[in-house]
Simulated scan of single mutants.
Amino acid sequence: MIDVTHQINAVRRRVGTRVLEAGEARVVTISQTYDATIDDVWDACTNAERIERWFLPISGELRLHGHYQLEGNAGGTIQQCDPPKSFTATWEYGGDVSWIEVRLSADPEGGTRFELEHISHVDDERWAEFGPGAVGIGWDMGLVGLATHLSSGAAVDPQEGAAWAASEEGKRFMSLSSQRWSEASIAAGTDPEQARAAAQRTMAAYTAEPSE
């Protein structure tokens, strides 16, 4: 499906905090530069027909103040939109509300830099248990789809994607992603032993066999 080592190394990951009206929030940032124009990347991220080709089927109104719903996943409201540079939206799932901010910019070395921030209020106990990889691995998997789509123009077959994620190669990708998010957490000040333990728990959750 994709060169695992190349994709892992192509992505930049950062962990931080931000103070919101409701208090301090955790911020997970993921970015990658693509060999594509900013208009093409923008269209891939905001056109419902193309989002389905690399991420998930999406319904709703993809416009300012419109509501969207990803099939079997999060929904929310688009709060800000500045084509083709940025948009922000709520990310509502399982009764929790967080936020995503997507920014596109020209990379000095060519291509378009995609950056996504996922901002959420996570209690200390839950953060200590799973760390940034809880959402970070999922976004890493999303960027695999985007990279594949932008490089080939083809749609990512959901069944093939699920089979790849369950394969040894897919598990190796998630393991490397979990490790890199652990390193980002340590760089942000987390105790190394705690960060690595959280990464192991997150990886176990992602690779657990579904119950019948």
Rank of each mutant, 00 (worst) to 15 (best):
L146Q: 05
T29D: 07
N9P: 10
S105I: 05
G131T: 00
M141P: 06
A188P: 02
A166K: 07
G111H: 02
T37F: 09
A44E: 01
E61T: 12
S167A: 00
T207R: 02
Q80A: 13
P108Q: 05
E212N: 13
N47K: 01
S211Y: 11
G72L: 12
G189L: 01
Q79G: 06
V15C: 12
L176F: 05
W54R: 09
G170D: 00
A187C: 03
N47D: 14
D39A: 15
S211H: 10
I8Q: 14
A147W: 09
W54H: 15
Y68Q: 04
Q69P: 04
G75T: 06
F114L: 14
I38C: 10
S31Y: 04
E71Y: 07
E101M: 11
S152D: 09
A106M: 10
A163H: 00
L70Q: 05
R196Y: 08
E209F: 07
L104T: 09
A208G: 04
V4M: 07
A106Y: 09
S167M: 00
E49S: 13
Q69M: 11
S98M: 01
V19S: 14
L62T: 06
L62Q: 06
V11T: 13
G145H: 01
G60P: 07
A154K: 15
A10H: 06
V135G: 06
D123R: 01
H6I: 14
T190V: 06
T112E: 08
M203R: 05
E61C: 07
R50E: 12
E115G: 07
G131W: 01
M174G: 07
L176A: 11
T88I: 02
E160W: 10
P210D: 07
F173E: 00
A106R: 04
D43P: 08
T29W: 04
R18T: 08
A205D: 13
D157W: 03
V135S: 08
R172A: 10
G94H: 06
A74S: 15
V102A: 08
Q69R: 14
I30L: 14
T148S: 08
P132V: 01
L143F: 15
D82A: 13
G145D: 01
A48S: 12
E52W: 00
M203D: 03
G161Y: 09
E49I: 00
T190M: 05
R201K: 13
V122H: 04
Q32W: 10
Y68D: 02
P210R: 08
A44I: 01
S211F: 03
A197C: 03
V15G: 12
T190Y: 03
T29I: 14
D82Q: 15
D82I: 08
A195L: 03
Q200G: 06
L143I: 03
W42E: 15
L116D: 07
E101H: 10
A197Y: 06
P108L: 00
W181G: 05
E212A: 15
A155E: 14
L150Q: 09
H67L: 13
E125S: 04
H67W: 08
E109R: 10
G136Y: 11
I38W: 12
E193N: 05
D96G: 05
I8A: 14
A204P: 05
D124W: 04
E193D: 03
T88Q: 13
Y34H: 15
Q80F: 08
I119D: 00
F114H: 13
A48E: 11
T190L: 02
F87D: 15
D40L: 15
Y68P: 02
V4I: 08
S86G: 11
L176C: 09
